[in-house]
Amino acid sequence: MIATTRIPLRQSRPVWLALMLAVLLLLCALSVAIGTRDVDWPDIIAALQGRIDNISQAAIAARIPRSLLALLAGAALGLSGAVMQGITRNPLADPGILGVNMGAALAVAIGVAWFGIVSAQAYIWVAILGAGLAAVFVYTIGSVGRGGATPLKLALAGTATSVAFSSLVVAVILPRNDIAGGIRLWQVGGVGGATMERMSHVLPFLAVGFVLSLISAKKLNALALGDDMAAGLGERVALARASAALGAILLCGATTAVCGPIGFVGLVVPHLCRLLIGIDHRWLLPFSALIGACLLLASDIIGRIIARPNELEVGIVTAFIGAPFFIWIVRRQRLRDL
Rank of each mutant, 00 (worst) to 15 (best):
A240H: 07
R13M: 10
M199T: 12
P270G: 04
G193W: 02
A180H: 07
L212N: 08
G86V: 02
L24R: 03
S67N: 09
S200C: 07
L26M: 12
A293R: 02
T5I: 10
I301A: 03
A180I: 13
R10M: 13
P261T: 11
I329W: 00
Q85W: 00
A149E: 04
P151L: 02
A254P: 14
G81T: 00
I45R: 11
G181C: 09
G35M: 04
R10H: 13
L48G: 10
V211H: 08
W186T: 09
S67A: 15
G81N: 01
N101F: 02
Y123G: 06
V83M: 04
I262Y: 02
A135E: 06
I215R: 11
A257L: 13
I321N: 02
Y123M: 15
L185T: 13
A289M: 04
R13P: 04
A3K: 14
L71I: 06
P286N: 07
P42S: 08
V317D: 05
I301F: 03
P91F: 00
T161C: 10
S166T: 12
I215A: 01
E313R: 09
F165Q: 10
M229S: 15
A222M: 15
V144G: 05
L154E: 00
I277V: 14
A70L: 11
L71A: 08
I64G: 07
L129G: 13
P91G: 00
V15Q: 12
I262C: 04
G263L: 14
A231S: 12
F287S: 00
I279V: 15
L152C: 01
I306G: 09
A107L: 05
R198V: 10
I141R: 05
L185Y: 04
T255W: 03
L133Y: 08
F287N: 00
A230M: 05
G103N: 05
L239E: 08
R332T: 10
R10P: 08
A73T: 15
A293L: 04
V188Q: 11
I7T: 15
E311R: 04
L156S: 00
